[in-house]
C-alpha cells in the first residue's frame, strides 16, 4: 500500500493529465485536496459552491429526507455540524474523539473533504474526514450524512470510499471516522 507521498504524486500527476484534456473543469484543487490531505489542503482552492450546509429550514421530526440542520452541542450525534458529510461511524462513540482515533486503530493519512457550517459562529470550515482503520467496523453511532457529497468520479468529495490509504501496517479495514478541521472555508 502506498504511503502519503506517493499518493500525493499520483494525484498531482493525475490531475494535471486530466486537466490538460478538459480545461472546462477546474478540479485540480479538488484533487489536490484529497491527495495531499491535512498537510496542504488549507492552501488549495477547494470548491465549495453549494456545498455548505446552512440551517435555513427546520426539518420534519425524524424525516431523513428533510434538510439537514447542524447543531453544535453533541459530537456523538449525526447532526453535529462537523459530521456534515460523514458516511460511517463516529469515533468519539468508540473510544476515540472528534479528532483522534480509538486505541489500537491506525490513522489514515488520506481524507475526503467537505465544507461544514458551524451554526454557533456562523462560519464554514473545511473538514478533512479521516478514517481510523485496522479493526472491524465499530457499529456505534452510525451516520449517513451527505451534505455536498459527490459521486465517486469526484473522489475527493465521495464518502463511500474506504479512505484508509496511508494507515500504518497498510491496514485497510474500516473502524470509524474523525472530523478534524483543516481550514476555514471562508
Amino acid at each position: 500500500m502506498l504511503k502519503n507521498s506517493r499518493f500525493d504524486d499520483l494525484f498531482e500527476a493525475l490531475s494535471r493529465r486530466v486537466a490538460s484534456r478538459t480545461s472546462r473543469r477546474g478540479f485540480i484543487g479538488r484533487v489536490g485536496a484529497v491527495a495531499a490531505g491535512v498537510a496542504v489542503s488549507p492552501l488549495l482552492p477547494v470548491d465549495r459552491r453549494g456545498r455548505v450546509s446552512r440551517a435555513e429550514a427546520a426539518p420534519a421530526a425524524g424525516d431523513a429526507r428533510a434538510k439537514w440542520v447542524p447543531q453544535d452541542n453533541d459530537i456523538h450525534a449525526c447532526d453535529y455540524w462537523r459530521h456534515c458529510s460523514i458516511d460511517g461511524n463516529i469515533c468519539a462513540c468508540s473510544g476515540g474523539s472528534l479528532t483522534n482515533c480509538p486505541p489500537g486503530t491506525q490513522l489514515a493519512t488520506s481524507s475526503w473533504v467537505a465544507s461544514c457550517y458551524n451554526p454557533t459562529d456562523g462560519n464554514s470550515y473545511i473538514i478533512a474526514y479521516r478514517d481510523c482503520c485496522g479493526k472491524n467496523v465499530s457499529n456505534r453511532c452510525p451516520c449517513l450524512v451527505t451534505e455536498g457529497e459527490l459521486p465517486v468520479y469526484r473522489p475527493e468529495f465521495a464518502n463511500d470510499i474506504i479512505w484508509c490509504f496511508g494507515a500504518d501496517n497498510d491496514e485497510m479495514t474500516y473502524h470509524c471516522t474523525i472530523a478534524p478541521i483543516i481550514g476555514k472555508a471562508g
Binding site: G50, R51, S53, A57, P59, A64, R65, A66, K67, W68, D87, L144, T146, E147, G148, E149
Partner: peptide, 12 residues
C-alpha cells in the same frame, strides 16, 4: 425516488 431536501441523495 421521493421528496427530499438537497443533498439527501442517499436516504431511502
Amino acid at each position: 425516488a421521493d421528496q427530499r431536501a438537497q443533498w439527501r441523495h442517499k436516504t431511502s
